[in-house]
Structures are given as structure tokens and as C-alpha cells.
Design a protein around this nucleic acid. Structure first.
Length: 571
RNA sequence: GGGCCUGUAGCUCAACGGUCAGAGCAGAGCGCUCAUAACGCUUUGGUUGGGGGUUCGAAUCCCUCCGGGCCUACCA
């Protein structure tokens, strides 16, 4: 039995995520985790909210809540939505957890001892009105290059010129609009990633089976310009993990916190700690997933994320892990994704354009979303959500091919026999051909899932469903029943077994429907098929079943038009 | 500006130097009647963005042009 550690990029705390966020990390991670569990492997699947940073503070200020309360509340909201999408996290933690505090401070201490932390004094813009230092992009002003009056301190969106906040003419705070700004000197810690460059490069170059997207982004950062740059890992903020060197104070760094991107990946480990605690286990339980000296050397660690997260997972976090000099588990495979667009454009939080996770669940069952998103997951390039495509995909694949198959089989069986798996008759050439085809397809499906080629996996699964309809059409039990009822009984017996098999195979993608299909036979779970022939004999004659309600109601044209109007956004 | 990815049938995608470039959807025809007017079979449709080159052979490698997207480092 293999042991597989799965992490999904952490969703940021400041609001409900849209489908583009879901499709790029949490959902594919869940499908993969479910698949590996179904194969009988031991899986630890963790995720958490990413709670620190300026945007969280601003979002809290906007609602008038203390930031800690705001995060606690939003964690609850995100957790509930994750449950609604059936994301099967073993732990959905919080980057603000005590575990993460301890671990982050611990790693910083180790890195400092290893000489990989540098203290740098730098000048940053401070806003007296806001009472805080402002990140570059929170300063607005007139671009010295093109005259655009809403240029940001890091870059002018109009002429794309890279800027320094001090370049701006008439700079003001993007938060309050205040022009009462001053440049103050402040000290920060830098992670000396540059010192890790060769080690990182060797490691990344050894990963020849990683998605091109992952390695090309990593290499770009390694080699761009002067090579990998050191990264500041502290900020002048109130909300965050206080800077400490392990368990000791860090002189000169009082009142500062670690930068979110330093502590967020560490929360993968933190969440595992939270999991052990929540399940009443000792530290050894999570350490055997994370410490190669404590049992983790046979763990395969797979990360899922959108392409924007790749630099942090290929460079920064590995620098932290490797630089610690301790035997922490390093990632084995990084699955990265492109973006999902909404009807030709970007999903937009500010313009309310596109579908957000809570809205999606409010209008249609999670399986619909899970299926469409995964069968169109942006693996090789950006993909596009349209209501027409969504309606067509869901109706055809789920309602017509799979749902209707279950429906026609169970209803025919009930009307010609009774609500029991019929006995009598023998399997012949048609059944052997079907079994041979399914044997090939199931093994192909396993291959795709193992390789985390989810789009192809979905495609193969669909072909497996379709094979049932083809078989049924050719075997024509309704015709056989008139002349040779025994033959019809054999066909129905096999077909009912197909429903059970489909439930098992489909579970990673559409867990609710899978559950409903199994419930038809009074089953809660069912094991992954070894040989297809054997699996199709699992339901014995006499086994009772209930004819299920329509598994997937179709999305009507009227409904689709309504959704399209509802989510068009304000722009 | 630099880098990366991408451009294949009306649409969404496969094929990653080698049999007539495949599949799903959409379209057309036929069949079936168990089923959510569902299913099955057959079929129309592509000089693989343009041009040039390497090769016995190129969608696949190289050059170039055109189009689309992303990244470019203290937002996360």
C-alpha cells in the first residue's frame, strides 16, 4: 500500500473563491486524493485557509471586524463551501493556527542558523493616515512615463512600465487616498534563495516528468536576469506570525510578522499537525508524513496549484525545506494548472463576473460542477467556461450517457422481472466482448489517473459509461425477453453489475451520484475492481435493488439563459 | 522589452518523427423502443495559422511572419 500526501494550494481568506480558483487546485487535488484512496492507498489530503497579509487586514477593516474574527468567520464560510463541493480534506486548517506559528518560527530559526537569513535595512513608504506601511501596489499616483493618473507603485497598468513607489508623481495611499506619506527606514529579513540556486536547479532538472508549465516557470525564475533573487520574508503588519528565531526573540524585529508567502506553504505541515490533534493522535502521526527520519521516506508527496503559485512551490518553499538542514519531506510532483476563463474573459471578483463557489452550489448540485470542471480542466492551456458548453457537457455526459443508462437498466429490470438481480441465463460472446473492452478501458483510466492526467481520465470514464449503452443496444434484452427470458435475465444481471461498477469508477469525479448509485443496491461502499470480469459478478442473483430517481436532471435552455444573465456581471 | 505556453474538423480537445491526422459535441441519414424525446449504427467535415527549411518521411524538429494567452519577483 502506497502512502500519498496531497496538498492543495491554500485559498486566500478574503472572500469566496470563484470556479477558476477551485478548478486549479482544490478540486483536482480532491479527485486525485479520492482516486488514490479508492485504490486502497493511504492518503493524507490537507488544505487550509491562507489568512495573513495586507488584503486580509483590509477586508476585515471594510467589514469593521477585528481581523482575527473576520478570518475565523471566513474560514467557516470557506469550510462550508468546501464541504458542499465534497472536497474530502482530511484537514481544512488555518495558516493562523498555533501549529503554523510554531513551525514557521522554527523554520526561520533553522534558516538563520544555517546562514540563509539576511537582515536588510530598506526604505518603505509609510502612510500616517492609515497608520501602516504600504506595499508598493497600494500606492497610487501619476505615472512619470505616460502620465496615467492611477498608476500603481509597482507598475503602471497603462504603459506597463515597472515603477518604484518613489517614482510616482503625487503619490497617495490606495487605501485611504491620503497623501500624507513618508519614506521610513525599516529592517526586514530576507531568505537567501540565491544561495540555494544550484541545489534548486539540480533538483528541478531531475524532475523530468513534471508538467512543462511547472518546470518552465521554475527555470525562468532561476535564470531570469541576475538569477534567483533573495526574497523578503517579513512585513510591518499587525496580523501574522510574529518574527521569532525558533522559540527566542529576534532582536530588532519586534512588532514584525512573517510574510504570508513564507508561512503559507509551511501550513501544509501545520495543517497536518492540526489533523493529528483533531483526530486525537500524537505528533508521530503527522511526522510520519513529513519527516523522512520518522517514517516519511516512502511517502509520495503531490502538490496541486494554479500557475501563479508555482514559483513559491518550486523555489521559496523548497528553499525553506532544504535550507533547514532537517529531514523534511520535499514535494515529489507538482501538478500545475492554467486558468479558467469565463465566457471569453477573466473571472472578476470586483465586477461580479463569473460564478463563485457559493453561487454555483446554490443553483446546481456539486457533481455537475465537478464533472464539467474536471472534464475541461485547464491542463495544457487556459480553458473557457461558457453556459452553452457547460449545459451541453453536463446534459450529454451525466444525464444522457450515465444517468439514462442507470435509468433504463433499473426500470427495465423492474418491469420485466422484479427489483432483484435476476438469475438464470449465461454470459456469451457479447458479454465477453464488453468485458474485454472494459478491461482495457479501466486499465487505461487507471493509467491516466495515476499520471494525474485528469482530462483524459474523465474522457476515458465517459467512454466506459458509453460502453454500457452500446452493449445494451446490441444485446437488446427487451427483444430477447419475448423469446428467451433467460437470456434477458443474464443481460440485466450484467447491466445491473455495470451500474455498480460505474459507481465505483466514477466516485472520484462525482461522489454524490456514485453514492446514490451504490445506494440503489443498499451498498455504502464497494472496492475498486481487480479484474472487470470478477467485478461484474459482484452482485449475485437475488440481490435486491431500488429503482432510483432521475440521477441528473437536465439543465433546460430557459435555466441556462437565466444563469447567463444572472452571472454576466456589472461591467 | 524579455521569457514561457499556444494556434489541428463549426465548437472543445487527442495525436509529442512513421499505417488513410483521431475523439466528444454540433450537423445529416438509418435503426431501436428498455430509458431523462434518451440510446445505437453510419456519415458530412481538416492542403494541422501563413511561408521557408531539415528528413526517405513533419501537426510533430529548425527559421521566419501573423494571431491568442500567461509570467516578469514585497497582492496573494
Amino acid at each position: 500500500m502506497a502512502r500519498i500526501l496531497v496538498t492543495s494550494a491554500l485559498p486566500y481568506i478574503n472572500g469566496i473563491k470563484h470556479l477558476g480558483n477551485l478548478v486549479g487546485s482544490q478540486l483536482p487535488a480532491d479527485v486525485y486524493a479520492r482516486y488514490e484512496r479508492a485504490r486502497g492507498n493511504e492518503v493524507l489530503f490537507v488544505c487550509a485557509t491562507d489568512e495573513h497579509g495586507t488584503p486580509a487586514e483590509l477586508a476585515a477593516a471594510k467589514t469593521g471586524e477585528p481581523v482575527a474574527d473576520y478570518c475565523a468567520r471566513m474560514w467557516g464560510v470557506q469550510k462550508e463551501i468546501a464541504d458542499g463541493f465534497r472536497l474530502s480534506f482530511d484537514q481544512f486548517g488555518r495558516s493562523s493556527s498555533p501549529y503554523n506559528h510554531r513551525l514557521t518560527q522554527h523554520f526561520a530559526g533553522r534558516l538563520a542558523e544555517a546562514g540563509l537569513i539576511e537582515e536588510v535595512s530598506e526604505k518603505q513608504v509609510y502612510s500616517n493616515a492609515d497608520g501602516r506601511f504600504l506595499p508598493d501596489r497600494y500606492i497610487e499616483g501619476t505615472c512619470p512615463n505616460c502620465g496615467y493618473d492611477r498608476a500603481r507603485g509597482d507598475q503602471c497598468e497603462n504603459c506597463t512600465k515597472q515603477l518604484d513607489p518613489t517614482d510616482l508623481i503625487n503619490p497617495r495611499s490606495a487605501i485611504s487616498g491620503s497623501t500624507d506619506l513618508e519614506v521610513r527606514e525599516t529592517k526586514h529579513l530576507y531568505l537567501r534563495q540565491s544561495a540555494m540556486r544550484d541545489k534548486l536547479r539540480d533538483w528541478i532538472e531531475s524532475k523530468t516528468d513534471w508538467p512543462v508549465l511547472t518546470t518552465s516557470i521554475a527555470k525562468k525564475w532561476l535564470d531570469d536576469g541576475d538569477g534567483l533573487q533573495d526574497r523578503g520574508i517579513t512585513r510591518d503588519l499587525d496580523w501574522g506570525i510574529p518574527v521569532r528565531k525558533g522559540t527566542e526573540d529576534w532582536p530588532g524585529m519586534e512588532g514584525k510578522v512573517f510574510y504570508v508567502w513564507f508561512d503559507a506553504p509551511i501550513e501544509y505541515i501545520g495543517a497536518s499537525g492540526e489533523w493529528a490533534e483533531a483526530t486525537g493522535q500524537t505528533d508521530a502521526a503527522w511526522e510520519r508524513w513529513w519527516r523522512t527520519d520518522k517514517g516519511a521516506d516512502d511517502v509520495r508527496y503531490v502538490q496541486f496549484m494554479g500557475k501563479d503559485n508555482v514559483p513559491f512551490h518550486t523555489l521559496s518553499f523548497p528553499s525553506t525545506i532544504l535550507g533547514s538542514g532537517e529531514p523534511w519531506k520535499l514535494v515529489d510532483y507538482i501538478k500545475s494548472f492554467n486558468y479558467l476563463n469565463y465566457d471569453g474573459g477573466k473571472f472578476s471578483t470586483s465586477q461580479g463576473r463569473g460564478v463563485f463557489m457559493d453561487q454555483a452550489l446554490a443553483i446546481l448540485p456539486s457533481d455537475y460542477w465537478r464533472w464539467w470542471l474536471m472534464s475541461n480542466v485547464p491542463e495544457t492551456s487556459d480553458s473557457n467556461f461558457t453556459w452553452e458548453g457547460f449545459q451541453a457537457g453536463v446534459n450529454k455526459d451525466l444525464a444522457d450517457v450515465l444517468g439514462n443508462f442507470v435509468s433504463r437498466v433499473t426500470k427495465f429490470a423492474r418491469s420485466r422481472f422484479e427489483e432483484k438481480v435476476p438469475e438464470g441465463g449465461a454470459y456469451g460472446a457479447a458479454e465477453e466482448a464488453l468485458i474485454a473492452e472494459l478491461e482495457t478501458r479501466v486499465r487505461a483510466y487507471e493509467g491516466y489517473m495515476e499520471a494525474i492526467e485528469l482530462r483524459k481520465g474523465a474522457q476515458e470514464l465517459r467512454a466506459i459509461w458509453a460502453a454500457g449503452n452500446e452493449y445494451l443496444q446490441a444485446a437488446a434484452p427487451w427483444a430477447a425477453f419475448k423469446t428467451e427470458p433467460e437470456r434477458a435475465a443474464a443481460i440485466v444481471r450484467l447491466s445491473l453489475n455495470l451500474v455498480r461498477l460505474y459507481a465505483v469508477l466514477s466516485r472520484p469525479f462525482i461522489p454524490d451520484a456514485s453514492k446514490a448509485m451504490l445506494a440503489t443496491f443498499g451498498l455504502e461502499t464497494a472496492g475498486w475492481p481487480g479484474s472487470v470480469a470478477e467485478a461484474l459478478g459482484a452482485l449475485k442473483p437475488g440481490q435486491a435493488f431500488t429503482t432510483p430517481e432521475v440521477l441528473f436532471a437536465k439543465i433546460t435552455d430557459e435555466a441556462r439563459e437565466g444563469f447567463a444573465a444572472q452571472f454576466a456581471g456589472t461591467a
